[in-house]
Structures are given as structure tokens and as C-alpha cells.
Amino acid sequence: MEGMTEAVRTRGLVKAFGQQVAVAGVDLVVPAGSFAGLVGPNGAGKTTTLSMITGLLRPDGGLVEIHGADAWAEPVKVKSSIGVLPEGLRLFERLSGRELLLYNAELRGISREEGAKRAAELLRVMDLVESQDKLVVDYSTGMRKKIGLAAALLHNPAVLFLDEPFEGVDPVSANTLTEVLRRYTASGSTVIFSSHVMDLVERLCDWVSVMSRGHIVAQGPIGEVRRGRSLNEAFLDLVGAGGSGEEGLSWLGSSSG
């Protein structure tokens, strides 16, 4: 880790919702320029962690640094350098895809002319030209993820946070998304995305952080975390997967009716 610039570092990040501790002291590290995957079972605290890093959820304790700047104390430095695609596809439903991008550009202080140019290019790359004047409320899941990613990329952020960007996305759209992200990281920018799909993380990422029950249980270059196993096997070992489910269900598959 010596000499490596870190795009993201958190120290002792904690968040509890009432009695339930969602994130219990997370020390996440992501080197600059990496394509990083944040993996973990449901309820591990991935979304909560990403929300706290991006300033959408107030941490109960701990520190978030993005390229050395404290995300909660110096928002002016941090907010212009990050792009976010949160979970749940929450967008301005009554704007068209194109209007959503132009709105984002204007909010970010990009001139109208430049905003329109970037929006047009992003719409073309994301294959959304045909539906650019349709309302987002009428978009499919894949289209929403693509327009969300386009909006997050519009101001050319140094670090991009994506929460489950591939969930519910068809293979064609997923391919478009990965192509765009690959190009983006190749230029030295950083992507951090959460996912359940181990194959995808294994294929795309050079850095992986594994979360379980509110903690980071392993993180590092993907080869180090895998140690010769497939990422899926390594993951199941790390999070301590339960029984094989062979007990019970004896009736299942034994009849034709």
C-alpha cells in the first residue's frame, strides 16, 4: 500500500438504525485508478457504507476521505469530484432523459452549450437517443440505470460510486455500461461499485472489498483476495455461508402434478 494514492479511505465508519448496527467500523480503502468491487451478502452494509461516503447519509462516527479531503467537513472539494448512482433508481420521474441530463449539467455549473454537447454524446453512447424525449417514469430498469450513469458521468468526476449498477439490467445494457466504465477507468479515474454477481466482479475489477455484517472481512487486489480459488468460493468462505439446504423439501421434484 506504500506510495499508492488512495481515491477513497474510510476510518471506523459506523452507522446504527435504532438497535440494529448496519455498519460497525468500516475501514474501506480504494486506490486511485482502480475498478473496485464492493461485495457482500444482503444486509452486509454495502448501501449504507456507500451512502455515507457520498454524503447522502450522516455517519454516527468515523471519517471519510476522498482524494485526501474530508467528505463531511470539506464538501466543496469533494462534491464536485464524485459521481453517484445510488440504489433504487430514484430520479426525477417527470423529466425526459435528455432533460434530466441537462438539469444535472446546469446544476453542476456546466454551460448550456457544453451540457447539451455532453448530454447528446452520452445519450448516443448509452443507446438512449430514441427514448431521450420520453419521461423517465416510462423507462425500463436498464434504461434508468443507463440514464443514471450518464447523469453521474456528465461532470467528469474523479471517483464514481455505483450501488448495484447491474441489478435488473439486460445483457445488452450491461455490456454498454461495462464498456463505458472500462473506458472511464482506463483514463485514471476510479470506479467503486457494489454487486452480488461474483462473476461480474471477477471479470471487471482489479480491486475488491468484501463486507459481511457491517465489517470489511477482506480487501485488496483481486488476486490476493482469491488466492487461487474462484472469487465465488473465496466469498462463500469469507462470509461463512450456511448449510447446503438439502434437509427438508423432500417433496420437491418428486411428483409430476
Binding site: 447522502l56 453517484v84 430520479l91 444535472n104 447523469a151
Partner: peptide, 10 residues
């Protein structure tokens, strides 16, 4: 959708 504004306003 308010997060879209929130991630920008510093």
C-alpha cells in the same frame, strides 16, 4: 429524487 440536488450542493 432530492439526492440528485444534494450530491451537487456544497
Amino acid at each position: 429524487a432530492l439526492w440528485i440536488n444534494a450530491v451537487v450542493y456544497a
